[in-house]
Nucleic acid binder design. Structure first.
Lengths: 132, 132
DNA sequence: CGGTATCCTGGATGATACTG
DNA sequence: CAGTATCATCCAGGATACCG
């Protein structure tokens, strides 16, 4: 098996959560939708490198897991919007501390002290914009 | 690419953290070592299904990421102990909310709710609109 | 006991083309 | 615009055997 998915037999909550966010692009999708709703094409542009097929697949899974809601507007140029469900918002919130940890210990503090306590959590929306 | 590892180019802290805990057995290893130090064989028995090769690989990665500490006692028969570093403890703590979420929303609160795209089960609160 | 060394597989991911 | 359909690829993870 390539990846994490472990149907059913969860050992703990983290294990179960990993099954939901384990896709390669899922946390980025979560992150983006945490800012605001996105249309399919917007989201695609927001995640440089993802293909339509994969983005659609990940969105379907997140939808099936009750994390994102897909709203289809019946308009002439098709219009679909994705947004977080309450459950998705809760998940995003639950990821806050993990994000803070990653920012402090992986991105910035390769050698920084493992100081406990709070790390400034500033949601500066900087999805891949510049580089990439 | 097969899985998540995305060297260097992290978009956010969660993304970076996923790189550290993305292995199939890593969160379980974290979970176990969160209780107490383990010897290699003990750990192996603690994670039914893992092979020596994979367990060793995941432990080496966690060690390289500064999450676990490997202590080798110069004895006969060989004796090695793995334990969390302070950074590993911090990571484990940061995973707390995620574990709670997974337990509540995936393990317990699911049923078919997750499937079929049904969303309104949590509450009828309007899906998150705007952002920020 | 605590690992390495090889070989192999499966499925997530990627590229490309096509459609309502 | 928002996808689906196919086919190709890559590599984490698994099986097995052997070593200090």
């Amino acid at each position: 098996m390539g990846t994490v998915r472990r149907p059913g037999a969860y050992v703990c909550g983290v294990d179960a959560a990993m099954d939901v966010i384990g896709g390669k692009w899922k946390v980025l999708i979560l992150w983006a939708l945490g800012q605001r709703p996105f249309r399919f094409g917007e989201l695609r542009r927001e995640l440089p490198g993802v293909t339509e097929k994969v983005l659609a697949a990940q969105l379907r899974e997140l939808e099936a897991d009750g994390i994102v809601h897909r709203e289809e507007y019946d308009e002439v140029p098709p219009h679909v919007e994705y947004r977080l469900t309450p459950r998705g918002v809760a998940l995003n919130d639950a990821l806050g501390p993990l994000g803070a940890w990653g920012k402090a210990h992986v991105i910035e503090g390769r050698g920084a002290s493992a100081a406990a306590g709070q790390v400034g959590e500033d949601d500066d929306v900087a999805l891949v914009t510049g580089a990439a």
